[in-house]
């Protein structure tokens, strides 16, 4: 027998009996951030490729919701802070080693960018939109002139944002489940797939839907590959990581992870999308919503299970 217990009765709120300091706010933000990154990535990419006219939903329509997603995410992040009056301290320093600091600054870049992108495209979707003031119209003309440059910045910063949502977790070696560099690419892929699903959902054009359906299938394949590798890595690693993987391989998170994230969030939508490519009638709503749901669930489950994985006691 080997039993290790705290005998002085430590019961620090949110720490004992198991760590629970990050609640719904962080995974919700990671989902919204990843989704926003996915949408911005495709908008930027197809602008650079000069296909604005061919894929108007991905370049013009879908990005209109990104400012809302990011603002919601920022509100969630703010709600997570426990010393709220000091939130501005994030922006008085840049700490290269802190993923949280990177995230704060990347958001400071991506959020205004998403507003600008939405603003220069809003008239294409709402033709009656009027900016009213001359200086705004001049500003709009200025940004339209540098659209491709903006698109490049958007592609690069959205990849950083997407990867960051995973790095935030993987930088903690104290939480063995999170401490894998695969989380960066996995969350990026999941965000891209959610972005593609959102574009499918908003698009009314068959060709565009088909394209994003194909893109989605490809990204989900990459995600599955990353998930398998993540667990292979855990099982070949130290005892704490083997224990962490066990949370999903027979432990309390097994059913929710494999059913909600892998089966409903990946396998079912891929099957439906493939069926649609073979001319079966599948309402686009179903695979798209399932992908979004799976992506959200993945953040929640990894956030909560990660805080349960530990080194001591």
């Amino acid at each position: 027998m080997r039993e290790e217990i705290i005998v002085s009765g430590r019961a620090n709120p949110f720490i004992d009996p198991q760590l629970n300091i990050w609640h719904w706010q962080i995974p919700l933000y990671l989902f919204l951030g990843g989704l926003a990154a996915g949408i911005l990535f495709f908008a930027g990419m197809y602008t650079i490729m000069g296909k604005e006219k061919v894929y108007p939903t991905s370049v013009k329509k879908a990005p209109l919701i990104v400012p809302f997603l990011l603002v919601l995410g920022l509100i969630a992040l703010f709600l997570d802070l426990k010393h709220k009056p000091y939130f501005w301290r994030l922006y008085t320093t840049i700490r290269i080693e802190s993923p949280m600091s990177w995230g704060a600054w990347v958001l400071m870049l991506v959020t205004p960018l998403s507003f600008i992108w939405a603003a220069i495209n809003v008239r294409e979707i709402f033709p009656k939109w009027d900016w009213k003031f001359d200086f705004i119209k001049k500003l709009e003309a200025f940004f339209i002139r540098y659209k491709v440059t903006l698109a490049w910045i958007m592609v690069i910063s959205s990849v950083i944002l997407g990867v960051y949502t995973g790095i935030l977790f993987s930088a903690f070696n104290a939480r063995p489940l999170w401490n894998t560099s695969i989380l960066g690419p996995l969350f990026l892929a999941s965000g891209m797939s959610a972005g593609a699903a959102m574009i499918m959902l908003l698009s009314k054009d068959h060709a565009e839907r088909t394209l994003f359906s194909k893109i989605d299938i490809g990204i989900i394949a990459v995600e599955m590959f990353l998930i398998v590798h993540m667990f292979m890595g855990f099982l070949a690693s130290t005892q704490v990581q083997i224990d962490a993987a066990a949370l999903f391989l027979g432990g309390p998170y097994t059913a929710s992870f494999w059913i909600f994230v892998v089966i409903l969030g990946m396998i079912v939508p891929v099957v439906l999308e493939v069926l649609e490519l073979y001319k079966f009638k599948v309402p686009v709503l179903i695979p798209a919503l399932l992908v979004l749901f799976g992506s959200l669930m993945m953040r929640f489950l990894i956030a909560f299970a990660g805080q349960e994985s530990r080194w001591l006691y």
Partner: peptide
């Protein structure tokens, strides 16, 4: 301190806690 909880998550000894003051 903004009370983001990153340090609490980062400590393998769970030696930190969120003070009621934030």
């Amino acid at each position: 301190c903004i009370g983001c909880g990153a340090c609490i998550n980062s400590c393998p000894y769970d030696a930190r806690y969120s003070h009621p003051g934030g």
